[in-house]
Amino acid sequence: MAYDTIEFSLRDGVATLVLNRPDRLNSFNEAMHQEVRQALTEVQAAVEAGDCRALLLTGNGRGFCAGQDLSDRNVAPGDEMPDLGYSIETYYNPLIRTLTALPVPVVCAVNGVAAGAGANIALACDIVLAARSASFTQAFAKIGLVPDSGGTWQLPRQVGLARAKGLAMLGDKLGAEQAEAWGLIWRVVDDEGLRDEAARLAAHLATQPTRGLALIKQALNESGTNDLDTQLDLERDLQRQAGRTADYREGVAAFMEKRSPKFSGQ
């Protein structure tokens, strides 16, 4: 499929999805929502076929994503107000659910401003790298809205309730280095090396035991709402699955034979 608002490729087990509306700081309009959904459908099919073992998400230009393109939301006096809940239910919630449930690692390279839904889409990914010049902004309060795209779920769990309230209610920019210090992202990278570093990380993850990584992702995602007993039972059940994979057998064999493992993703 030809894309206009994104770039998409699949090579050597890594799917790369690049938001490509740089003149609008990669903010979402309906066309980009539809193209991202189509690309993720291709990713899901490739994962099921064993052809995709990691996803890299980033943006072109000087911003990762400024959230919703507000030019699509401009309402003249007297016009009926838009149903923002419809937009969330139709576009943003399915996107967050797909990224969270995708059974391969999702790496996000934040190359500039990540604002509103753009910030929370990044936080829905598994490992987030950010350029040193990048920033994260919960811009919703500045226009009278509530953080969406999982923001009110992610922020308290990652930075604590006090910081989450400050970020959400003030809408201040959080620099990449502070985001790293607060545990909001994995690591800060110098601007000029971000894309290459993210590509190397995704390529590495694509050589690892894919099924085991998917089970790790599931366990960690469910831990936030499980009590200890439920989580212990989940670990038991997931470990049972992991122990029956070809990659586990290969990992043990490589350890015993003192060689590097060659994981198949199975």
Rank of each mutant, 00 (worst) to 15 (best):
T5W: 00
I6K: 02
F8K: 02
L10D: 03
L10I: 12
R11D: 15
D12H: 13
V18H: 00
V18R: 13
V18P: 01
L19E: 02
N20T: 00
R21V: 07
D23G: 03
D23N: 06
D23M: 02
L25S: 12
L25A: 15
A31I: 02
H33C: 09
E35L: 04
R37N: 13
A39K: 01
L40K: 05
V43I: 02
L55G: 10
L55F: 07
L56F: 04
T58W: 12
C65S: 15
C65V: 02
A66G: 10
Q68W: 14
Q68H: 10
D69P: 07
R73V: 07
N74S: 13
N74I: 14
N74T: 15
V75K: 04
A76E: 14
G78M: 12
G78R: 12
D79N: 10
P82L: 12
P82W: 14
Y86G: 04
Y91R: 01
N93P: 03
N93K: 13
P94F: 01
T98F: 12
L99H: 01
L99D: 03
T100V: 07
A101Q: 11
A101M: 01
P105K: 11
V107Q: 04
A109M: 06
N111R: 07
N111M: 00
G112N: 12
V113K: 06
G116F: 01
G116P: 04
A117E: 05
G118M: 08
A119T: 08
L123A: 02
C125W: 05
D126N: 13
I127H: 07
A131H: 02
A131S: 15
Q138N: 09
Q138H: 09
F140L: 08
I143F: 14
V146Q: 12
P147G: 00
P147T: 05
D148E: 15
G150W: 05
G151N: 03
L155E: 07
Q158Y: 06
L161I: 13
L161R: 13
A162Y: 10
R163V: 14
A164M: 05
A164W: 05
A164Y: 09
K165Y: 02
L167S: 06
A168F: 04
K173H: 13
G175D: 15
E177I: 04
E180K: 06
E180R: 10
G183W: 08
L184S: 09
L184W: 08
I185T: 00
W186N: 11
E197L: 01
A198T: 08
R200S: 07
A202S: 05
H204V: 09
L205G: 02
P209K: 05
L215Q: 04
I216Y: 09
L220H: 09
N221T: 10
E222M: 10
S223A: 15
G224H: 15
D227L: 03
L228R: 12
L228A: 11
Q231N: 09
Q231G: 07
D233C: 04
D233L: 12
D237S: 13
R240D: 11
A242S: 10
R244M: 13
T245P: 05
A246I: 06
D247A: 02
R249E: 14
A253V: 01
F255R: 12
M256K: 11
R259W: 10
R259P: 12
P261G: 02
F263S: 01
Q266F: 00
